[in-house]
Design a protein around this nucleic acid. Sequence first.
RNA 1: GCUGGUGUAGCUCAGUGGUAGAGCACCUCCUUGGUAAGGAGGAGGUCAUGGGUUCAAUCCCCAUCACCAGCUCCA
Length: 639
Amino acid sequence: MSSLLDLVLPDGTVRKVPVGTTTADVAKGIGPGLAKAAVAGVLDGQVYDLHRALPHGGSFRILRRQDKESLEVLRHSAAHLLAMAVLDLHPGTDLGFGPATEDGFYYDFRPAQPFQEADLPRIEARMREIAREARPYARTECGKDAAKARLQRVGYALKLPHVDEIPEEAISFYDSGGFTDMCEGPHVPDTSWIGAVKLLSVSGTHWRGDVNGVPMQRIRGTAFFTQEDLDAHLKRVEEAKLRDHRRIGREMDLFSFHEEAPGAVFWHPKGMVLWNTLTEFVRTELRRRGYGEVGTPMVLSDELWKKSGHWDHYKDNMYFMEVDERSYAVRPMNCPGCCLVFGTTPKSYKELPMRLAEFGRVYRHELSGVLHGAMRVRTFTQDDAHIFCDVEQMQDEIADMIDMWKVVYRALGYDLAGVAVKVATRPKDRMGAEANWDRAERALMDALRSQGLAFGIAAGEGAFYGPKIEFHVTDCIGRTWQCGTVQVDFSMPERFGLEFTGKDGNRHTPVMLHRAILGSMERQVAVLIEHHAGKFPLWLAPVQARVLPITEAQNDYATRVAATLAEAGLRVETDLGSDKVGSKIRQATLERIPFMLVVGAREAEAGAVSVRERTGQDHGVMPVAGFLDKARARIAERT
RNA sequence: GCUGGUGUAGCUCAGUGGUAGAGCACCUCCUUGGUAAGGAGGAGGUCAUGGGUUCAAUCCCCAUCACCAGCUCCA
């Protein structure tokens, strides 16, 4: 047994250090710059406190202040700092968990008196005071029984049961002055490292996320090593909010919301341009890929929903009504109606796969607290489709759906690598045989692998009738939203008694694949707005060009130019007001109109337009036909 | 649904226990100006809704509704 440890540094060199060496020691040995910048060490993937002895050799690197992972360490420490301040100012508060998050940290509390937003500045100020005290984050370890005794002593009742769920035998605690918390770390050496903190919100939550569990309050915040970094971050957040689809939707007159229909989008003419352009684009793909389109009713008898399984598994989200002594429900999904269409006539294997698309509007009674602009609503239209096929055909069909997803999302301007792909597996509340769930989950994962797509698992998040592939895109402040989805369903065809006659002359039950590419029109448009910050590519822009006469003497000419372009299929407006061009340009730019066509006496004389782009780029004077060619080319390539 | 917050003109926001203001937008007039704001005037508000306290409530209290952030849930 050697008393030296071998640390393999990122550049491949091996450093031999004595037992008891800390990350700080190694950094100091390499250089004073690194010693100053070092925050923690990573040994074989595990992060160690700067002053914690490295227990063994292995692949080793040092986290510096500028490394992203260092922020995680800092923010975890900031969460402890928050708890220290809260316990100082609100004695008797129970502690929950307090982790670092993507861009900050939070801590869950059960206070004697509920926290209010007005409490945050005081807590924040106390955090800064404690930070200046440079309280250490001192790590100690003990066994489970000792840990429980310790928790009991400091009064952390909520955390007690958690001890037994920790797989490791040694339980670690971090002490900072009078404050102690059971925590696996790592942390920065002391509180003075936390250069800048900002508390952002207080919200409700539940102990360990269980709605029936103990209600708690979560205080969220963020932290950085320096005030400059914090300021820069807050500025970025402010700028991101300028992309908010609710704001841009109003500014661009795309849609509105009204109290009379909470959770519903009222589409305005310009918003419908986006909607219709998207559906037409999807329709071209449907035609290429051998789909037919169906249209089925929104209100269907209760009997149907009992048959489909929604009655047992989805009732809480449905709207019901009684008419002529018969009970109906507004559809929350399109699939049952589609099953009725398929089942109308006997089917042969020669007709499979039968691909039936439907731009179907659904209603779901979502909890009031989850509604969010057009992203999360109570009525939305899915670009839905149901494919009935043989088990043998299933894999190819799923592959084609994934291919369609790629084609459509690329055209919409998404970076596919930035879209999170997940497989949502069987939920607790489900129907159908386990063997079918095995088969369905495997089919989805196999298809993704064969398409070379990396994916995560969302355990237990599948639909009640089958597992799904989910395609998640990100909004302006980093929240992700499921848009596209592909689902395998062995249950519903069986429940509807759907059949086809096989090659062998026997009756078989088809597999049903559910799929949406855009997801919901409402959510998709909202995400697109935020993705492009309202500056849509030409083919999507609700108004593609505006003609701006320099004086009213050119109003007639401007009107004729607009008419010519509109005749040719462009979406054009005129601005015939008495403002100066500078003002008209400013207005059109703020409205994010791609092209401004300035026409003065010279252009009117020459039958031309002076073309300015939304970006400010000047394309010079060209004939009207020349501009039309240019615009058409750009629309065709969807850029 | 839960915790906290917000609700005043189309938008962004001031404001007060004695029934309201600004900027932008809108309308009218003047101006006819060459690539991000020309000038003047005008109109516009049951201060979210319903109760209560008060001589008097937009303001204080209660309830409801909607929205916002988060939890849970989902396209």
